[in-house]
Design a protein around this nucleic acid. Structure first.
Lengths: 338, 338
DNA sequence: TCTGGCACTCGGGCGCTCGGAGTGCCAACC
DNA sequence: GGTTGGCACTCCGAGCGCCCGAGTGCCAGA
């Protein structure tokens, strides 16, 4: 276990390095932070920290920079989450309040997050699996063709065509619509399969095939998590990444286009609470030089989707975490209101 | 007017510079191209070309690079559109054929275009204003609340809620639905307003307000061009942009996030035919060091949307134009089939 | 009008030096 | 034992001078 002072030294190193982007040495440290000890002592502490793998030297006789492990310790033990200032909070609320529909909410969120953190923001659209059904509509487009419209509590609308073997009467249709809605409205998507399981049996034998087809389509729509969408913003902030440009930035841009990867990444965030993945902790190789801060957000108590930012490992963790958390909270509120 | 040979020199300069990314000198030119004259002659020609503003020197005693004006002349007079090879065409077709829905078509198109041109691809979703109506559905969600669903020939579905003052009977609803569809199905959006103008008059006086409300919502949906969407891909190709990274790339990334700007940019492409905007020809300042190649695509003879690429002014114009044209053509086919 | 020759320019690469910041180690001190 | 000041050492990076090569402009001659 590291002594109190050594932790303090690590904290100072992280803070300075994040600020200056340059390796930090013992003398500079004692000058900028009131550690109460001499540079020589700090040097000894640094040697220990290096041995333990928390910091590293780019080359002999240079200052130290934190390693991924160092950042990890910093985030876990040394840094809190920096709450936003009141004006900042107010600005967030005002900005998000102006949103007119779901697309707009997500769009504003992504811009806001990118601006606050000066990093790349990623916002997942509220997922279908977690949300609840607001309404299911059925209508017949042609004798043997139905249209299924699903409206969710997060404002998303999905529609599918259902081809049926046999024509389906208007009365049967109305019947199905009514029964279906009475069972599923207000329920969570995950519960729907159970709730409609025995529905076909209560219909005339001739209609059962059609009912089954409709239900199959409905369940398929619900299950189609693959269609989870993302919005990304603030990519211009990548230019503030580092000095050795093309090499660092390219894989990140590539990763950002792989929405599947990003979704997986966000998904790894724990059910609740904030997740911080630092450097090599990211499974995806292209993001090995970045950190991802993500958190769930939701309209009720529960998370319906995730959002987060991607930035250099050398980032202001407390500030970023504060911004991410605050934005998630306000988006949740907005969704609950609408 | 420039002599034939001087044009040839300009062409050679453009080609070499695009290939090497380095200023090209007189000697290298005569070695790589069979111009049939000596370097000294080429030097004279270069001096003229420079005076006319087609090429420039980064600094004294360096080679020449084309100016925007030079590229313009090259594109207009010297370069054709390079057709794709047969295998390439086949690959495009195969790749696009696999698409399952509109989102998928656009997604595949953007990836394809980015890969073929090795640049940033931008694809606009088929616009509502140009396409035709496939079906209009009306259904009542509550006594005084209707839902309007619009299905377009490009596979897009838009839905709106309509609140009515008075309840609207099922028979009236079916009536309106039938009459509405008989008038507008297969028609272009722009023609719809005229076609439904006199519809309210043919209804009972009690229902007219509702009919008008429905029509108003329909027209509003049609008119809502603002909702035009874009998909962007291949941003990782920006890393191949140039040497002086952050400065060049930052404004481009910013521009790419301004979908409004991009839509305007694409919109500037002439009604039909390909548009090439070179460097400062782009109204948007952030794209002053890029060229934009765009073209309309559509399911019928007419364009329903645009697509294109954004790349450095130093790009392979014939190849890029060929790829853009080919992709647009195939996307059009795919849309027509579905 | 084209060509070869020539003097000139300039950027970039290479090697060198030098200073500053930083380190590790050691002996002394509390 | 932990802390400190001193000291020798390392190494990067900035600055400088140098030279080479590629390129140019100009001119006289074919």
């Amino acid at each position: 276990m590291l002594s109190e002072r050594r932790l303090e030294v690590l904290r100072a190193i992280v803070q300075d390095y994040v600020g200056t982007e340059e390796p930090v040495g013992s003398k500079a440290l004692t000058e900028r932070h009131r550690l109460g000890v001499s540079p020589a002592t700090v040097r000894n502490d640094m040697a220990v920290l290096e041995e333990e793998g928390y910091i590293a030297q780019p080359h002999t006789s240079a200052g130290r920079i934190p390693t991924d492990k160092g950042y990890r310790l910093f985030v876990d033990k040394l840094a809190g989450v920096k709450p936003l200032s009141t004006p900042e909070r107010r600005a967030i609320q005002n900005f998000l309040d102006g949103a007119v529909d779901l697309d707009d909410v997500v769009g504003r969120t992504v811009r806001l997050l990118a601006q606050l953190t000066r990093q790349v923001a990623v916002v997942q659209y509220p997922s279908l699996t977690r949300s609840t059904v607001r309404h299911v509509e059925l209508l017949s487009l042609a004798p043997a063709r139905l249209m299924l419209v699903l409206i969710t509590d997060t404002g998303r609308v999905e529609q599918r065509l259902v081809d049926t073997q046999t024509p389906f009467g208007e009365t049967s249709l109305a019947d199905l619509r009514a029964r279906l809605n009475s069972r599923v409205v207000g329920r969570r998507f995950t519960d729907v399969p159970q709730l409609v399981q025995d529905l076909p049996e209560s219909f005339e034998i001739d209609d059962r095939a059609t009912v089954k087809a409709v239900l199959a389509t409905l369940l398929e729509t619900l299950a189609e998590e693959a269609e989870e969408r993302l919005m990304i913003g603030g990519t211009a902030n990548l230019t503030r990444f580092g000095h050795d440009f093309p090499l660092t930035i390219r894989p990140v841009l590539e990763a950002l286009e792989e929405h599947v990867v990003l979704l997986k990444l966000l998904g790894e965030a724990g059910e609740s609470g904030m997740a911080v993945r630092i450097g090599h902790e990211n499974a995806y190789e292209g993001l090995n030089s970045t950190s991802v801060v993500s958190v769930g957000y939701g309209s009720g108590g529960e998370a319906v989707a995730k959002l987060g930012v991607v930035g250099p490992t050398r980032m202001d963790y407390p500030g970023t975490m504060g911004a991410v958390r605050a934005v998630a909270r306000y988006v949740g509120q907005i969704l609950a209101e609408s």
